[in-house]
Design a protein around this nucleic acid. Structure first.
Lengths: 188, 188
DNA sequence: CGCCGAGTTGAACTGAATCAAGAAACGTGG
DNA sequence: CCACGTTTCTTGATTCAGTTCAACTCGGCG
């Protein structure tokens, strides 16, 4: 079990069989139907998911309106780190956009792995470093780029998003309306 | 040496004398004059700074225009993590806004500490988790809040910024022009 | 004193939002 | 597997928040 995760971890940090055993035995399989929630805002995020198949959308629900914050695809983790780490209620929702197959791990298990296995502690740091850099790039995009430039970055850097995600969610992710994104696309 | 850093670290993660010794011996003192650069974009960020006194401004320089990305004050680290971690050139500048007194640590020293001291590896993870959450909040602010709401959050959450930072840099940080921020203020 | 950068204020402009209506795509049940 | 109804996407007209440009004030500092 957890073949996809193992393949991923092998690339990130060296670990021996013992460490992998411990990791593997804390994993649970889970399946989500299309449009099923992995996390609902207000809940505490007690499990992180590693996506083996399908993808999820992360969105804030504010005043009846959904504002898309992020997407997570195959070989990525999903959930609310802020909530997972702090134990505070999550501020956004995580919903399966397609049927999703994933592995989950609880915060308790994660902390146990961190405390007992140097390689997993290190993995925790490395993962956070990567995610931080991603968020920093997104910050830069909001500060420096026009909506049009942001869309073009999307085309260049994550073309699979543009293929698989309905336009209205991409628009929301870019911080613009579907109408504006539609017009940007038809200009090319 | 490094009293301020020690006081800070004591609150974040338990560590014994040996670990602290190793940390302390990798630190260098440094002083920056007002308006002196700690990091210039295009350079690789080879040292992280821990600010004991004063504050710095982080800004992108694009087409002759300065766009402020962040500020770091006393008891915070400064530099470009993305560059520090990856060894790639930094995409922004770090400039002292007041005379700054700080401690610096090299990437090599940091990696050595991470590999040899469990507590510092853990500190690395914990720091990154915090910084990630901060960036996530800033992302949320761009997605969900109007410029006016963003300014009010600033007033509430980091009032010392509003006190110490010239308005034009705050405006840039919020992603608006000084004129707009001036008008927002005069409405209250 | 007079200069200079920071902040303010006003007027015109503009890019994106909003509102509205029509076309296309999708998935659901018969 | 088709037909219908709902959602998604497009297109156009209007509105509006924030930018731009320009002029003026203020306070610090040579």
């Amino acid at each position: 079990m957890g073949e996809e995760l193992k393949a991923y971890l092998d690339k990130v940090v060296p670990h021996d069989d013992d460490a992998w055993q411990a990791m593997q035995s804390s994993l649970k399989r889970r399946q989500l139907a299309r449009h099923e929630h992995f996390l609902v805002q207000g809940e505490v995020c007690r499990h992180l998911g590693f996506i083996a198949e399908g993808y999820v959308r992360l969105y804030y629900l504010v005043g009846g309106e959904e504002i898309t914050k992020d997407f997570n695809f195959e070989n990525e983790f999903c959930g609310s780190y802020a909530s997972f780490i702090s134990g505070q209620p999550a501020l956004f929702n995580v919903m399966a956009m397609e049927p999703v197959r994933l592995y989950t791990i609880s915060r308790d298990s994660q902390l146990m792995l961190f405390e007992n296995y140097f390689c997993w502690q290190k993995l925790g740091r490395l993962s956070m470093e990567r995610m931080f850099i991603k968020k920093e790039q997104r910050e830069a995009s909001f500060l420096l780029d026009s909506p049009e430039a942001r869309y073009e970055k999307l085309l260049r850097e994550t073309p699979h998003w543009v293929q698989r995600v309905p336009l209205k969610y991409l628009a929301s992710y870019l911080g613009i309306t579907p109408e504006t994104l539609s017009r940007i696309r038809n200009k090319r």
